[in-house]
Each structure stands twice: as C-alpha cells, then as structure tokens.
Simulated assay, not measured.
Amino acid sequence: AYDKGLRDIVAILDPSHGLSLATRQTPRQHRRPRVVKVYENPHTGELIETKGGNHRGLKAWKQQYGPAAVDSWLRG
C-alpha cells in the first residue's frame, strides 16, 4: 500500500544504520601503551618480561610462591 520495503523502514527508524561504523561511532580516546614489566625470580634468576598480568609463567609463579611475593619481584 505504501510501496516501502524493509530498507526504507529501517532508514526511517534508524537513519544512522546505513552509515559505516567509523562514521557512527564517537571518536575514541587512545589508550596509553602498556609498560613492559620485568619480574626476576630470586630462586632461579629467571626473568619474565610482560605487558600484562596474563603471562603463563607469571601465573605459575603466583600459584607457587603467592601473588604478594611475585609482585615484590618487579624490577625497577
């Protein structure tokens, strides 16, 4: 009766739907790059360099020696 398709209805209800994602989103703040942290195990002398806390070796150390002890091994 109105000769309107689904695309026309969507365009009426959400005018920004057809725009690209970059055009629709507000500009994002850029994150500060993560700092490399170096941990040294005093028992073995082993070093682990990581930018986050999700490192496999760091997790193993925290499980073995406890998080407080491992956090104290941070160099710098």
Rank of each mutant, 00 (worst) to 15 (best):
A1P: 08
A1V: 09
Y2V: 12
D3I: 02
K4R: 14
K4T: 04
G5W: 02
L6T: 13
L6D: 10
R7S: 13
D8F: 07
I9H: 10
I9W: 14
V10G: 05
A11C: 05
I12F: 11
L13W: 08
D14Y: 12
D14L: 14
D14V: 15
S16H: 09
H17Q: 07
H17L: 06
G18A: 08
L19R: 15
L19Q: 15
L19P: 00
S20K: 13
S20G: 15
S20R: 13
A22W: 01
A22E: 15
A22T: 12
R24L: 05
R24W: 03
R24I: 05
R24C: 09
Q25T: 10
T26R: 14
T26I: 01
T26Q: 14
R28I: 03
R28M: 08
Q29L: 11
Q29G: 03
H30P: 07
H30T: 13
P33T: 12
P33Y: 04
V35T: 10
V35S: 09
V36A: 14
K37S: 09
V38S: 06
Y39G: 07
N41F: 05
P42K: 02
H43S: 08
T44E: 08
T44I: 02
T44F: 00
G45M: 07
E46M: 07
E46Q: 13
E46F: 08
I48T: 12
T50K: 01
T50Y: 00
K51F: 01
G52Q: 03
G53K: 06
G53I: 04
N54Q: 13
N54G: 13
R56G: 05
R56P: 09
R56A: 13
G57I: 01
G57K: 05
L58M: 07
L58H: 08
L58T: 04
K59T: 05
A60G: 04
A60H: 10
W61G: 09
W61M: 09
K62I: 07
K62H: 00
K62F: 00
Q63L: 09
Q64D: 08
Q64R: 15
Q64S: 07
Q64N: 07
Y65P: 02
Y65W: 09
G66H: 07
G66W: 04
P67E: 14
A68E: 15
A68F: 02
A68Q: 14
A69E: 15
A69L: 11
V70G: 06
D71A: 12
D71M: 03
D71S: 12
D71Y: 01
W73A: 04
W73Y: 06
W73G: 06
R75K: 15
G76T: 06
G76R: 10
